[in-house]
Simulated assay, not measured.
Amino acid sequence: MFIGEFQAGKVIHEDLLVVQHAIKQARNGKDYQFIKLQDRTGQLDGYNWNYQAGSPEFKEGQVVTVKGTIQEFKGNLQVNISSIAASGAAFDRDKFLPVTSRDVNVLYQELESMIARIQNPHLKKLLVTVSQDPEMKHLLQTAPAAKSMHHAYLGGLLEHLVSVMGLALRVCPHYPEINQDKVLAGTFFHDIGKIYELEYKTAFEYSTPGILLGHLYMGCEIFDRFVRKFPQFPAELSMEIKHIILSHHGLLEYGSPKRPKTLEALVVHHLDDLDAKINTINGLFEAAGKSNSPWTDYHRLLDRRFYRGDEGNGDRAEQPEELPATPVKKSVQPEPSDSGQTKTVARAETRKSFSQQPFQQLDGILPFEGDKKEE
């Protein structure tokens, strides 16, 4: 039985994954054991009130056998642990780690389709090369987007990248002065450092490089590693994409060493922030739905609760599975004397020629004629 199937009053005897362990002190001064447990369907707080000094303690990522009773407290389920011990069962990632509900192969095809819409030859060559690199493809299809905040499940990073790039293809045509190619490249690279920032073999944790360097810096390292394959890649274009990576958190206090200082960087920051928050709130809605509450629990980082209404997540209008063949462009009528605005419209018109076909066959794209081979 999985955590998602637990009900109040039920006695369980299950193998679960430890994702957090702490010895805490109750109001009466007695120590108790707090353990956050997980399987692929969710997480559950566990309390061992019978803990005694010297009893076994457990590490994050360890599989344990838990006996106890499921209780409901303030609308949430928890387990009152009667016994807990290390399990002899082998770790099974498919059982214990959450995974995206989307088909990662379909998601990757969507990613390729959106990369194929890039017109700038330098950016297109770069993104095709990165996305077709065997190691990068495997990691992008596997990595979570976060340890716990948003898209915190296997394949979550790919789901997040595809979602943000899809938002870019809808927003950029509304503002033809924005360079859509730079936004698409920036969204592709903005979180790519998370493939190395996070550990996700037995549990979601930060790697040592991730703790010391962070995914913004690591994303720039990945970008530079692949750019070096193309000596003719424009230096200024490289600088602008790295600025998007470094500034996408938006504020210095949120970890960005620079705030967004180009239109494209500003767009990527807001689209990334929107997608992350929507995913987080939808997770809160799902949890509230299990308790039949119209309100979510308080979220510490978002500093509020969210109202899901009587119908909750209910029936929503179905979204189209595919993007329009050609982005809808805002109609702009330039003044004859305004040469700058005329150029803006001209740039928007060039988007009509964007390739709409995914590069399932790379003939004519790889290798790239005219590029000097790396010495």
Score class of each variant (00 low, 15 high):
Glu5Phe: 14
Ala8Pro: 06
Gly9Asp: 02
Leu16Val: 07
His21Gly: 09
Ala26Thr: 12
Arg27Leu: 11
Asp31Cys: 11
Tyr32His: 09
Lys36Asn: 12
Arg40Met: 12
Arg40Phe: 15
Trp49Ser: 13
Tyr51Trp: 11
Gln52His: 12
Gln52Ser: 12
Gly54Trp: 06
Glu57His: 01
Glu57Ala: 05
Thr69Lys: 13
Glu72Cys: 04
Glu72Ile: 03
Asn80Cys: 08
Ile81Gln: 03
Gly88Phe: 02
Ala89His: 03
Arg93Ser: 05
Asp94Ala: 13
Thr100His: 11
Ser101Cys: 14
Asp103Val: 13
Leu107Gln: 14
Gln109Phe: 08
Glu112Asn: 11
Pro121Asp: 02
Asp133Gln: 04
Thr142Met: 10
Pro144Asp: 07
Ala145Ile: 06
Ala145Glu: 07
Ala146Gly: 11
Gly156Asp: 05
Glu159Trp: 12
Met165Arg: 14
His174Ala: 15
Lys182Glu: 00
Leu184Gln: 10
Glu197Trp: 00
Leu198Arg: 03
Glu199Met: 06
Tyr200Leu: 07
Tyr200Ala: 09
Ser207Arg: 00
Ser207Glu: 01
Leu213Pro: 06
Gly214Pro: 07
His215Gln: 01
Leu216Asn: 07
Leu216Asp: 05
Met218Phe: 01
Cys220Asn: 11
Arg225Asp: 05
Phe226Ala: 05
Phe230Met: 06
Glu236Trp: 10
Leu237Lys: 02
Ser238Gly: 10
Glu240Gly: 09
Glu253Val: 07
Tyr254Ile: 03
Val268Pro: 03
His270Asn: 10
Asp273Val: 01
Ile281Met: 03
Asn282Gly: 13
Glu286Ser: 14
Glu286Phe: 14
Ala287Asp: 15
Ala288Tyr: 01
Asn292Trp: 11
Ser293Lys: 07
His299Gly: 00
Leu301Trp: 05
Leu302Gly: 04
Gly312Cys: 10
Pro327Arg: 10
Ser331Met: 14
Pro334Trp: 10
Ala346Gly: 05
Glu349Phe: 13
Ser353Glu: 14
Phe354Leu: 13
Gln356His: 11
Phe359Met: 09
Gln360Trp: 10
Pro367Tyr: 05
Phe368Asp: 04
Gly370Cys: 06
Lys373Val: 06
Glu374Phe: 04
